[in-house]
């Protein structure tokens, strides 16, 4: 089950491909050689660190360390998600954090316990990569959901108020926005599932096949991963928007315009 190793000389020869790239960039005066060097150096440093600490975390394989690691991942995800959505940071940080953490933990443990059926459901070398996969996808769809929710709420505030004035609670009046935001956010997930395998092999499968897995097993993992990503994103979207409805409107149910300002 082991992947073919990459030796130091192999690594070196691989990195050597940067040199002809730089020559081409210089010849065609494309002007991004400096960025290329910076990017490659950053990648080397960041991934070396990841290799180091993942190696230790996998060796240590302690429940609390693993959970702390996931917590940190969710925190980074929530923070970068809010920053990229150009909504006001402070008020939405905690709800975003919770909206990502809660479904991710549930799905993750279900994956280990019911799907992979391993004895230690907190096993680091499954828990952490799967959490990373789910968070990456959930992050993307949560940003889309939040953005389109507040976009619509801003644009169609009159509809919201019309419903509010004719008996709706703020949750009921904001439901059209919630529905539309979830539809928009989940559409790419549906499309990916429907086209998977037609154009390119998805990441999880490629990784496993390179790692020496049987293609059938790789496909089984891929299917399970797509299902849990879908489930997790949907749950997280809904939570995220329910929190947003709580936070995004004042005590008298007026839309908090300040949340829409970019900072």
């Amino acid at each position: 089950m082991n992947a073919a190793n990459i030796s130091i000389s192999g690594l070196f020869l691989g990195l050597l491909l940067i040199v002809p790239s730089m020559v081409i960039i210089w010849r065609f005066r494309l002007g991004f050689n400096k960025q290329l060097i910076i990017s490659v150096l950053r990648m080397l440093v960041q991934l070396s660190f990841v290799a180091l600490y993942l190696k230790y975390i996998f060796l240590l394989d302690h429940v609390l360390v693993n959970l702390a690691y996931i917590l940190a991942m969710v925190m980074f995800a929530a923070h970068s998600g809010i920053r990229n959505s150009s909504l006001r940071l402070k008020k939405l940080l905690l709800p975003t954090f919770l909206a990502m953490l809660m479904p991710t933990m549930v799905t993750l443990l279900y994956f280990n316990w019911a799907i992979v059926q391993i004895d230690n459901i907190f096993q680091a070398d499954i828990l952490i990569p799967i959490a990373g996969l789910m968070l990456g996808n959930t992050l993307k769809s949560n940003i889309v959901a939040l953005k389109s929710f507040f976009n619509m709420a801003g644009k169609e505030e009159k509809t919201y108020l019309f419903l509010l004035a004719n008996g709706a609670s703020k949750q009921e009046a904001a439901r059209p926005f919630l529905k539309e935001a979830i539809r928009t956010a989940m559409a790419p997930n549906l499309a990916t599932m429907a086209t998977v395998g037609l154009v390119s092999l998805p990441g999880v499968m490629t990784g496993q096949i390179l790692g020496g897995s049987d293609p059938v097993l790789a496909v089984k993992y891929q299917i399970m991963v797509m299902v849990i990503i879908f489930f997790n994103s949907l749950l997280s979207n809904i939570l995220q928007l329910l929190f947003a409805i709580r936070q995004g409107f004042s005590k008298s149910d007026q839309l908090e315009k300040s949340l829409l300002d970019s900072h």
Binding site: E156, K158, T159, L161, F162, A165
Partner: peptide, 17 residues
């Protein structure tokens, strides 16, 4: 208070549907 009111806005802003 809102529950004792019926409101017709200028553009009668029904939701889409």
């Amino acid at each position: 208070i809102r529950h004792q009111i019926a409101y017709l806005s200028q553009d009668v802003d029904f939701p889409n549907g």
